[in-house]
Design a protein around this nucleic acid. Structure first.
Lengths: 203, 203
DNA sequence: ACTCCAATATATCCATTGGGTATATTGGAT
DNA sequence: ATCCAATATACCCAATGGATATATTGGAGT
């Protein structure tokens, strides 16, 4: 069922990667079908032979992001390391991460790659944290708690709602909040969040 | 400095409310300047006398959302009630909530209303939870933890990444995860999350 | 080797969108 | 009554996602 490439080569993969590059650079909203097509030397209409519509192309990019994140997370078996790796991925690829987490309910049902890739992410987290104590359900809930916490923190940080002084400070703080700080670390909390009371870095 | 309305009345407020209605119905992406203008009987160009650009109109809507959420949250002084109210607002106004949380860093700096409204939200949470034990910093961190947790859970639930069986089930579960369940409640966790292992509601 | 045909790519076309510029209108201050 | 800045309109434009029709490619069947 995997057809050999005809004219251009594997346009599906080529287009997905080109789109991903553009998206990581400028964000998904600023990435047009024509821009992607230009990048790889085709007409924008050629893409419609491989993707139902623009959303489908974005979904393919999101799926590729899920796969990469899953791969990055697989060797991180300790909870703290796991969370750290997750956060660093999101901070290193903010536009991609946002795209991944903003796929519509429909996209998850339509683009089979996507649901599959997202489920793989959940599974790798469940497996990696299999060493935690407690029943399966307790572990599952712990994974959910960690995920919600780090994702929520990231999302609030990546938009301007909350503003940490730096990415590194953000990671330190989120680990502290999750109760996963290094034993000998004592993060100074009060200096982290810069909202109206204390402006970012003057003095 | 508050100018009386000239031709149409207070177009700023009228347009913001119309935009909000459209956004709550169809989402921000699907709401065009022209659609808003039609709704209130003006030209789309008239809006540019009150909003710098499309983003600014969306930011005004977001600010109004922040104000409403803050108002809803003010009387909820117990942590559990607070979180419950927050979650219910987001679930009742999913498109609006997403818009609020997706304002760009720039928007927060440019549209003064917006930063102000977002800060008011943080403050009301800090004040409401002032009864919690611990130092100011500990309380601040506790607020952040609760916020990140509930927001992260909501965001994952509102997109299709995680799928709870229902909104009510989601609220119950998020409270349990946060350690804020009613004492006599014993939420059955395993039945909540429906991802690939067990499809939504058949049986 | 030749033909055929489905998969793939292109060529035009269209409505809608955000935003620009120039012009008209309004109504309070003088 | 007049003037002028705030407001609204008229018309324009390039870019975008998507539709339809046509051209091209190259492997399968003979």
């Amino acid at each position: 069922m995997v057809r050999k490439p005809y004219h251009h080569g594997d346009l599906y993969e080529t287009a997905t990667m080109a789109a991903r590059t553009l998206i990581e650079a400028n964000g998904a909203e600023a990435t047009s079908l024509r821009a992607v097509a230009n990048q790889i030397g085709t007409t924008h209409r050629a893409l419609y032979n491989h993707f139902a519509d623009r959303e489908a192309l974005l979904a393919a990019v999101a799926a590729s992001g899920y796969r990469d994140l899953t791969t990055a997370l697989r060797p991180a078996i300790k909870a703290r390391q796991h969370m750290q790796t997750y956060a660093r991925f999101a901070l290193d690829h903010p536009h991609l991460y946002r795209l991944m987490m903003q796929q519509s309910y429909e996209a998850f049902e339509t683009v089979s790659n996507l649901r599959q890739a997202a489920d793989a992410l959940i599974d790798v987290s469940l497996n990696a944290l299999a060493t935690l104590p407690g029943s399966d359900d307790q572990r599952r809930r712990a994974v959910m708690r960690h995920w919600m916490l780090v994702h929520g923190g990231l999302d609030l940080h990546l938009s301007g709602v909350l503003r940490a002084r730096s990415d590194a400070a953000f990671i330190t703080e989120i680990l502290a909040i999750a109760g996963l700080s290094e034993p000998d670390t004592n993060p100074q909390e009060q200096a982290l969040w810069a909202h109206k009371k204390d402006p970012p870095d003057d003095k």
